[in-house]
Computed example of a mutant assay.
Amino acid sequence: MPADFSAGARLELRITPSDVGKRVSVRQLAEVTDGRPTFTDTVGVLASWDEGVVYITRRSGETVRIPESALVAGKVVPPAPVRRATAVPDVTDGEMEEIASRAWPATETARLGGWTLRFAGGFTRRANSVLVGGDPGLPPDEALAEVVRWYGERGAPPCLQVPDSSPYAAHAAARGWTREADTLIRTAPLAPLTLLPEGTADPVTLSRTPDDDWLAAYHRTGDLAEAALRVVTGGPSVWFATMPGAIGRAVVDGPWALFGAVEVIPSHRRRGLATAVMGALARRAAQEGATAAYLQVEADNAGARSLYDRLGFTDHHGYHYRRPAA
């Protein structure tokens, strides 16, 4: 990456933890060889600054970890120009599932060949199911037995998240694993979403962590608040949107931006709050270099699908869950 500090300029550290969420350029000491220091530069969004460690998310989606003691210079820089790409990257169903899984990370994972076993204390089906990918490295019956054993050790019911196109869907069905919660992953170019009107006098507030208002509006935590907080704050570059009557969440991962947890309280519906939240999150994601949007919606949620149709989302693929028969 080209240096963002001109040669001979005075090096000053002009960023603090209060700049989290802003785009910054930093220089760090890489090593000292024969008494001569060498430096590296990083430009990206300051994702966090905790316990003496700085994390910066580059436009590629890579997160760089830098010890605070290694910083020799840093400054806030203007947001990256918004790229107006209209094409959504061409990815397979499996690749799309891996991207989505990073945006809703379980608190514990294990690999079983091409499958990922996920557990998050019971908070959401997605974070407590096996992401069925390629070959599990075992015959299918043995793989299913290992899934049952692994979740049994954690006192949790076994569950599979299976792309509709996966050959393992038919195998699980033949073994009596019942199908539930058909879901669609839908994608769209991000640029049109950045142009969504605010449509309300109340501003949308963006933050790196969910505040009390956001958590109060997010009604799915139940008795699992601690596990929920760990999941919803996980991901490469996470943003929370809050405004009176509505909330939302976005996760930026390279060219992709996930939109989720878009909630509008019943008394505030049909006021354009959902699109205001999505527009604010889209503009932030575009500043970080994202060019494509995606979301997950249950196949039978006609209202949400209609909204997303109007916003330009189209189906990428479907997936569903399977559980062993009782």
Rank of each mutant, 00 (worst) to 15 (best):
I56M: 04
G234E: 12
G279V: 02
D93S: 05
R111A: 14
E298L: 09
S237D: 15
G74A: 00
A217L: 15
L307R: 13
A286G: 06
A261G: 01
T86L: 15
V132Y: 10
G122T: 10
A173G: 12
A299I: 07
R179I: 05
V26N: 03
G152C: 01
A326G: 05
M243N: 06
G52R: 05
A87P: 03
E68M: 01
Y55P: 02
D315H: 05
R111F: 05
D50C: 01
P78K: 11
E298M: 12
A173I: 07
G254E: 11
W256V: 00
T40V: 12
A293L: 02
A106T: 07
A228H: 14
A188Q: 11
M243S: 09
D19F: 01
T183W: 11
L295T: 06
V45G: 02
A227Q: 14
R58N: 05
G289T: 01
P139H: 04
I247K: 06
L195G: 08
A286Q: 12
A280L: 05
R323S: 11
V76T: 07
L112D: 10
P167F: 09
A274P: 03
G234L: 06
G279W: 12
Y308A: 02
G248E: 09
P139S: 02
A85W: 13
L281V: 03
G35T: 06
L117V: 05
E31S: 08
D223H: 13
R126K: 08
G318P: 02
I247H: 01
P197R: 11
D213M: 04
Q28I: 09
A3F: 14
V148D: 09
D202P: 02
R154Q: 08
N301W: 05
H316N: 11
T42I: 13
D93R: 04
E98D: 13
D309V: 02
S6H: 15
G234C: 05
A145E: 13
L224H: 14
A3R: 15
E226K: 09
F240H: 14
V130F: 09
L144M: 06
D213K: 13
P158Y: 10
A169Y: 07
G152R: 07
D182H: 12
P157I: 06
H219E: 15
D253S: 04
E198P: 11
D90I: 00
V88F: 03
